[in-house]
Amino acid sequence: MKLTLKIWRQKNSQTKGKFEVHKIEATPEMSFLEMLDVLNEEIIEKKGEPFAFEHDCREGICGTCSMVINGQPHGPMALTTTCQLHMRHYKDGDTIVIEPFRANAFPVLKDLVVDRSAFDRIIQAGGFVSVSTGQAPDGNSILIEQDVARDAFDAASCIGCGACVAACPNASAMLFTSAKVSHLSLLPQGQVEGAKRVKKMVAQMDKEGFGNCSNTYACEAECPKGISVENIAKMNREYFSAMVSTSDK
């Protein structure tokens, strides 16, 4: 199939970017990223500069791949990362617009590559259980109801790709932050420092320059792992109760 690609080209975070148009011949069996590989090979053959895009596992689990495809983070298929998107979902003659994730908190580094280190800093603010190696009691001394373990897992299955921020009309990081808050606050191990955690993580999230959540739920709709906005509601509860119950002034 013959496709027209409009791809974002941007030298670095200081410069302005623009779209570049390329034609490409793809086959239905290719993955979307393999199609871009082929494009880059063709560009290199002509001694041009290939497009920079991030990717790694190509199995939909590492969260490295990003890009917004025709207005959708990770493209049109539900519960699918860009790396698992295949070209058979497109047809001959299609035009595909490929842009980087856009948010002030995710500055573009080059072409389709953005800086998502804000997510790391949110986790560093408190997205952990303060237990050092060797301090743990026997695994079975902490009993966790099956359903609770399941819910915690569902929240913990976030891959930190940032599609929620990219999809949100406000570039808010609530789904990401709340998934971690939820995961840890559901489990008894994480509840001990739950109040402190949610306060610190929210403060860091605000500091990073993400927008506010306005409950449009675009994050959930575009999340490749189906993380639920129920986590956001849970984080709100945790946060409000932490604010009124902790003893700081």
């Binding site: 779209f19 917004v68 025709n70 617009v97 842009e99 002030n104 908190a105 993400f210 927008g211």
Partner: peptide
């Protein structure tokens, strides 16, 4: 303001 550069699509 949280998204200074807008999406084309």
């Amino acid at each position: 303001g949280a998204r200074a550069s807008r999406y084309a699509v």
